[in-house]
Design a protein around this nucleic acid. Sequence first.
DNA 1: AACCGCAACAACCGCAAAGGG
DNA 2: TCCCTTTGCGGTTGTTGCGGT
Length: 308
Amino acid sequence: MGCRSCDKPKMNYRKGLWSPEEDQRLRDYILKHGLGCWSAVPAKAGLQRNGKSCRLRWINYLRPGLKRGMFSQEEEDVVINLQAKLGNKWSQIAMHLPGRTDNEVKNYWNSYLKKRVMQLGSNSSSNPASKNASPELLTSMSATTELIMTGGGGGGSTATSTHDHDANIGSSGAISAAEPFVDQQHQHQHQQAKNYAFADWMPATAAAAAPGPESYSMSAHWPASTASSGNVTPSHGAFVGDQMSGSSYAALQHPHQHHHQQQEHHHHQSAVTAAGAAGMVAGGGYFDLLNMGDIYGGFTTTNDDLLF
DNA sequence: AACCGCAACAACCGCAAAGGG
DNA sequence: TCCCTTTGCGGTTGTTGCGGT
């Protein structure tokens, strides 16, 4: 694992959000050279980031094949089930969700699912909707709730560690997707078609059709002034690949209502625009246009083998 | 209009495992 | 076998923007 040939002088690494330029550099470098020694990437790619940051950025955001957008009902159920069975083993959970990263799963759990599970746990006796949930799911959810409850009350959005409770989790086995969980509470804060379309992967022509900061997808945190500076030339494409067809991810279209629709709209309207230019499918899973076989040839990232 | 609380999520931090010299 | 470096993972923090008061 060691990579002594990659030794490099210490330097002041940049921190914080990635600029489009940095993304472009990293992406270009990896597409050209493939994955290798992360610690060498910053220097070779001309980035003032540390390798760790580059790796994280690649895995969580730039990597082709990532599915952005709302979690489908199936994905949600898988997360709930696996969280109950495995605890906070986000990387393992993410392995069952092609296109999702552990960070994304973790964030989704911490910001939404955990509360929902807790809420469900407290309402399950009186909530008629719970009757429609599969026994397995309810079991797992109650188990999850128990784990959370024993972890301490707490509110807020701060993550509460629930792992290392694995021993308490029901044993047996096979992880099966629960039946669709009809939940009236699903008029919830589920993320409505986020559709941040991986827009920076879109072809330049498509990007040109969706000009402005909006075309920079979710790094939308990046100041518009920078993003729209014109220095960035997105050169990638978003597409809904064959990976989607025939899979349960058709369910990405499920019509969850978003409690914060306006907020989501604000956050992601840009990408919708971009996606419109690049071609998108309702429900919003996005895959890269590039030939994944070419790109993934030498990749060893955690979920890669599951993606394609 | 200003302030505050909250939600969402990107990114950082620290630790442990893995692997080469 | 030990030491050092890299990588992977999970927890946590920081940033941004919205809604409510």
